[in-house]
């Protein structure tokens, strides 16, 4: 798991496996916004009903196909640990996409997006793809954050935005696919840039700021 998670060269692993790319994605947001619900909804097919609780499950895997490429998405979820200050450099390491989730029925979770953005800004690698996800859009009667507000915040921060409902499944697949597509595009353009300019290394995908030289794996 650490070899996959800490990998900065997804293609080299892909050569041996049945997929073309492996992307690490993170779900970030306050507790109770439904991050885990989204994850389960998305990874439903791979979900085993005789699911045995293993202490310390960190992520779920779901393979998707985009433009003929098989992409293995490794989705990490901070569920239950949002209040601990464990979401540091190590957690973000190697992450290529971050889904920032809030709950349209809770103003606080929306307001906290700014704080999560700061956390990302501080700890995540530069240029990580981000998507603002408004969850529970099925609960119109309880909604306190309008779609426009979400859209506005996303535009303000220059990131993409989507409303979805883990409950009904609306747009859930779309959210992950959109993220996967963006990461893929970015990754491929980087790859071709590297091919053109052979002198540059792939290093930009990994954490450039590790003072220990060697990259620590992921925690949480």
């Amino acid at each position: 798991m650490s070899s996959a998670a800490g990998s900065s060269t997804p293609t080299s692993i892909a050569a041996q496996k049945a997929y073309d790319y492996l992307f690490k994605l993170l779900l970030i947001g306050d507790s109770g916004v439904g991050k885990t619900c989204l994850l389960f909804r998305f990874a439903e097919n791979s979900f085993n009903p005789t699911f045995i609780s293993t202490i310390g499950i960190d992520f779920k895997i779901q393979t998707v196909e985009i433009d003929g490429k098989r992409i293995k998405l490794q989705v990490w979820d901070t569920a239950g640990q949002e209040r601990f200050r464990t979401i540091t450099t190590a957690y973000y390491r190697g992450a290529m996409g971050i889904l920032l989730v809030y709950d349209v029925t809770s103003k606080k979770t929306f307001e906290n997006i700014t704080n999560w953005l700061k956390n990302i800004e501080e700890h995540a690698a530069e240029g990580v793809e981000q998507l603002l996800v408004a969850n529970k859009c099925d609960q119109e009667d309880k909604r306190v954050i309008s779609e426009e507000q979400g859209q506005l915040l996303a535009v303000h921060h220059g990131i993409d935005f989507i409303e979805c409902s883990a409950m009904t499944g609306e747009n859930v697949r779309e959210a992950f696919y959109r993220m996967a597509r963006r990461v893929k595009t970015k990754h491929e353009s980087k790859e071709s840039a590297q091919r053109a300019d052979g002198s540059k290394s792939v290093k930009i995908l990994s954490d450039p700021g590790s003072p220990l030289g060697k990259s620590l794996g992921n925690c949480c």
């Binding site: 885990t36 619900c37 389960f40 609780s53 202490i55 499950i57 569920a79 239950g80 949480c220």
Partner: peptide, 8 residues
């Protein structure tokens, strides 16, 4: 974390 996963 695990309890949250179970719950979901």
């Amino acid at each position: 974390h695990d309890l949250m996963m179970l719950d979901t």
